[in-house]
Amino acid sequence: MPSSNLIRGNAIVANEWTCVTLPPPAEETVRKQAGKVVLFKLTGEVSATPEQIAATQIPASGKVLVPLSVWLARKQELAGRLDKGELGVWLDTHELIESLVEGEADLNDFPLIGVHVERCADGRIFSIATLLRTRYGYNNELRAFGDVLRDQLFFLKRCGFDSFLIRADRSAEEALASLKDFSAPYQGAVDDQLPIWRRINRNAL
C-alpha cells in the first residue's frame, strides 16, 4: 500500500503539504437550473463567506496549502509563514486568478500553488494553469488536486502542472502510465511551446 497518492514529475512522492479547507457554509443551498442540480459554479462566483474564512483552522506549524480566499483576507497573519517557505495557496476552478495575481509582487514567492477541480469534466483547470505558467510567470510547483483522474493527466501536464494528487480511491501507480499517453502532440502548449512543425522537419519523415 503506497503511503502517498502524489505524483511529482514522473514519480510518486510523499506529500509534505497539509491542505487547509474552509469549514462548510452555515446553510447549504441546492441550486437548480432547467430542473437539474447545478454542478458547476460560474467563473467569478464568490466561494467563501467572511465567517467561513475567519473560522478556517490553519495548523500552527508545517507546510500548509491555504484557500485563496483565506490568503487574501488573512495575509498579515500568514505573511511570516510565507517567508519561511511553508505557505502555498490554492484556488478553485471558478475563482479568478486575477484576484491572486493582483496582490502579489511575484507569484514565485509561493513554493506551491494548487488548483482544485471538483469535477474532472471542468476544463477551466487547463486555462488556469496555462495562464499561471505563461502569462504570470509562475515557475514553482503547480499541483492539481480534487477529482484528478489518470485520463486527464496528459492534458494537465501539457498545461503546466508538474504535481498531481490522484483522487484517493484510485491508484497513482497506474496513473503514472497516462502521463505518456501521447508521444508526438501536434500543437504547442506550456510543456513544449513549439508545435510539431517547429520541433521537427516533417518533410523529411
Binding site: 474532472c120 469534466a121 471542468d122 476544463g123 487547463f126 486555462s127 496555462t130 486527464q152 496528459f154 492534458f155 494537465l156 501539457r158 498545461c159 501521447f182 502532440p185 501536434y186 500543437q187 502548449a189
Partner: peptide, 9 residues
C-alpha cells in the same frame, strides 16, 4: 485541435 490540452473539456 487534435488533443488540444487546454481545450480538452
Amino acid at each position: 485541435s487534435t488533443f488540444h490540452p487546454e481545450f480538452a473539456l
